[in-house]
Simulated assay, not measured.
Amino acid sequence: MTSKIDNPPPYEEALQVPKYGNYPHQPQHGSPLPPPPSYTPSPGMFPGPPGYWGQEGVYPRAGMWAAPGSSPTGLPTTIPTLSAGVPATNPGEMEDFLSTQWESTSIRHAFIRKVYLILAAQLAVTFSVVAVFAFVDPVRQFVIRYPGIYWASFVVYFVVYCILVCCKEPRRRFPWNFLLLGVFTLALSYMCGTISSYYDTKAIFIAMGITAVVCIAVTVFCFQTKVDFTSCGGFLCIAAVLLMIVGIVTAIVLSFQYVPWLHMLYAAIGAIVYTLFLVYNTQLLIGNRELAISPEEYVYGALSLYIDIVHIFLFILQISGAATE
Rank of each mutant, 00 (worst) to 15 (best):
Y266V: 04
Y266A: 10
A267Q: 13
A267R: 05
A268F: 12
A268R: 04
I269H: 03
I269E: 01
I269F: 09
G270P: 11
G270L: 01
G270N: 07
I272E: 05
I272Q: 04
I272V: 15
V273L: 00
V273W: 00
V273D: 06
Y274W: 10
Y274F: 02
Y274A: 01
T275E: 02
T275D: 00
T275K: 01
L276S: 08
L276V: 06
L276N: 00
F277E: 11
F277K: 01
V279F: 15
V279T: 14
V279G: 06
Y280I: 11
Y280W: 14
N281A: 05
N281F: 06
T282N: 13
T282Q: 10
Q283T: 09
I286W: 04
I286H: 05
G287H: 05
G287K: 14
G287I: 01
N288M: 12
N288S: 10
N288P: 07
R289F: 15
R289E: 11
R289G: 09
R289K: 13
E290G: 01
L291T: 07
L291E: 10
L291N: 15
L291S: 11
L291D: 09
A292Q: 14
A292S: 00
A292Y: 07
A292C: 15
P295M: 13
P295V: 13
P295A: 06
E296H: 04
E296R: 08
E297G: 02
E297R: 07
E297S: 09
Y298I: 02
Y298Q: 04
Y298P: 01
V299G: 02
Y300T: 14
Y300L: 11
G301K: 11
A302P: 09
L303T: 05
L303S: 07
L303V: 02
S304K: 04
S304P: 06
S304A: 08
L305A: 08
Y306I: 03
Y306D: 06
Y306T: 14
I307M: 00
I307L: 07
I307A: 09
I307K: 07
I307D: 02
D308P: 03
D308W: 08
D308G: 09
I309K: 08
I309P: 00
V310T: 13
V310N: 10
V310C: 09
V310W: 13
H311V: 09
H311K: 15
H311T: 01
I312L: 13
I312F: 11
F313V: 03
F313D: 06
L314G: 06
F315L: 03
F315R: 04
F315W: 06
I316C: 09
I316R: 10
I316H: 03
I316P: 02
L317W: 01
L317I: 08
Q318N: 13
I319T: 10
S320F: 14
S320P: 12
S320W: 12
S320Y: 14
G321H: 11
G321E: 00
A322F: 11
